[in-house]
Design a protein around this nucleic acid. Structure first.
Lengths: 198, 198
DNA sequence: GTCTATAGGAAGATAGAC
DNA sequence: GTCTATCTTCCTATAGAC
């Protein structure tokens, strides 16, 4: 009954959609379940968004931005380069263990998007944003400690993203805390071995 | 019209389901599209399988077995340990580039399974089978060349699976051949550095 | 065993009163 | 802008004739 500006309604629906996806999965995030989560009538969906696809574009954009913000926050550690690398990995891992549903949703969303022609380009841009973010993170890590990498930054960036994605999936699917943690530490060793002191 | 044994019909439906999933994605693999692919009537589905879930259990089992068979074939290389490691990674990568749809489906299936209570245990067993397969592969690689690993085999196995999963996703999502390949080679360097000659 | 026909429900999207 | 009611389509699963 209360009148809400369309822009605000859109934000509320995007947030509700993300909550439903985290709780029940992307497939269960139907227009009906989303408006129910937001406490709105079904028709509210379609005078806020032209289609479900338009909502999903916004959901993907919001989640990508959120993830990149978190990555930037992770840069704050003090001490040696080695310590900074470990701290960054630890910080990511802590966030994963505290918010598994959120991470699972990002994988579901890219897969969903890549199977739907209208969303495929959005998914690719999302991945490119991650790679660019990782590159900047790796670059500034070396600069802040006045060291260099023995391997080109774009290569390390892709390797970093692949390893973290893979370890995340491993833990989400297998559920073995100690096993995944040991593999993460091994990846950390490798990253540190790529640093050349100068 | 021709009478087919139920067991054979089940196999035909499982194979048809996999073809549909590879081509159109797991979400599009409905009972209707699967029987259409197999050239059967809709009702044939439900006197071959109790439910769609029962078919999916068979699909997951078949794909897991197929993947493990491929991994075993990859062991045949001759030469130094380093060469064997490179050859195994190359062989995997070649299969990925030639069958991207098949690999994409395995990720979709685990995600699908983990969201459906009745299939969650099947998905976990699938992942455990992968880890066990990787462990055996890593073990026999060292034995056949009379060297040892500087890190426990289960840790390397999880690291290997995570890295390959992550690199696969990276390539499937970003589509950059050279970028993913460079990251793969970096992972290869790391694996080789974990070998201790004796 | 094999089929046609249909039940029964949930999805995205829209019409039209207020 | 906001709602209820409904359209249309697609899904899994079953009934019942052959």
């Amino acid at each position: 009954m209360p009148r809400i500006a369309v822009d605000e309604r859109r934000d509320l629906l995007v947030e509700a959609a993300i909550r439903v996806m985290v709780r029940d999965g992307v497939a269960k995030a139907t227009t009906r379940s989303i408006v129910a989560e937001a406490g709105m009538a079904l028709a509210a969906f379609h005078y806020s968004f032209r289609s479900k696809q338009e909502l999903l574009e916004n959901v993907i954009g919001t989640i990508t931005a959120h993830t990149l913000d978190l990555a930037v926050e992770r840069l704050g550690a003090e001490g040696s380069v080695e310590h900074k690398v470990r701290a960054a990995l630890d910080s990511y891992w802590q966030h994963l263990m505290a918010n598994p549903g959120e991470h699972r949703v990002t994988y579901e969303l890219t897969q969903y998007a890549l199977r739907h022609p209208g969303l495929a380009t959005v998914a690719k841009r999302q991945y490119e944003a991650y790679i660019e973010g990782a590159s900047k993170l790796i670059d500034s890590l070396a600069h802040s400690s006045d060291v260099t990498w023995t391997v080109p930054v774009p290569v390390i960036a892709r390797y970093l993203i692949a390893v973290m994605d893979g370890l995340t999936l491993l833990w989400l699917n297998e559920g073995d805390d100690a096993g995944a943690r040991a593999a993460l530490d091994l990846a950390g060793d490798h990253l540190i071995s790529l640093i050349r002191m100068s």
